[in-house]
Design a protein around this nucleic acid. Structure first.
Lengths: 80, 80
DNA sequence: CGGTTTTATACCTGATAGGGTATGAAATGG
DNA sequence: CCATTTCATACCCTATCAGGTATAAAACCG
């Protein structure tokens, strides 16, 4: 499972809030296993579920230029 | 089906290339029905399939701040 | 207007995502 | 060091996504 940008984003944000996976799953209202798979970078996730999680972080899925996300560790994900 | 940012993005890009839905489906290697649902804004799509399509446009799914995408018609999607 | 192309909607089917859970590994910290 | 917490992996089950197709509606253009 590739550590996609998305997965790292979620991990970072979650940890920034000092939440465990079960806590996040609970707060977001999604299954624990889903959080696990999301953070593990499973590619075949359903958008709506992912969006439920991202919304919790004030974000959502959207089209992003490939360079910007693949290689670079960028603003949005990086820190704050 | 909400006309999400993503859906509009795909429609625009496809039309910009003068492709029909069947043509795009074919080029991308994804089902025609999927392209339809994607452009119609179906929220429960699988990320990997969506990414196959986006990759064709040099993009991929990534976390995006909600403001930036929801209301605004922005750079990335907008024109070229 | 009629003909052609493109798109939208509905149906059936197999494959699998997601939930729940149980177990073990790994990290954490006393 | 051992105890506790957190995380990873594997299982079963149900709901549904994606593909294919067929049909109709809609847009387009002569």
């Amino acid at each position: 499972m590739n550590q996609s940008e998305l997965s790292r984003f979620v991990v970072q944000r979650r940890k920034a809030l000092k939440l465990t996976q079960p806590q996040l799953a609970d707060k977001v209202g999604v299954g624990l296993r889903f959080i696990r798979e999301l953070e593990a970078g499973k590619p075949t996730l359903r958008m709506d579920k992912v969006n439920e999680v991202l919304r919790f972080f004030g974000c959502q899925l959207g089209p992003v230029p490939i360079e910007r996300s693949a290689s670079n560790n960028n603003e949005l994900d990086g820190h704050a």
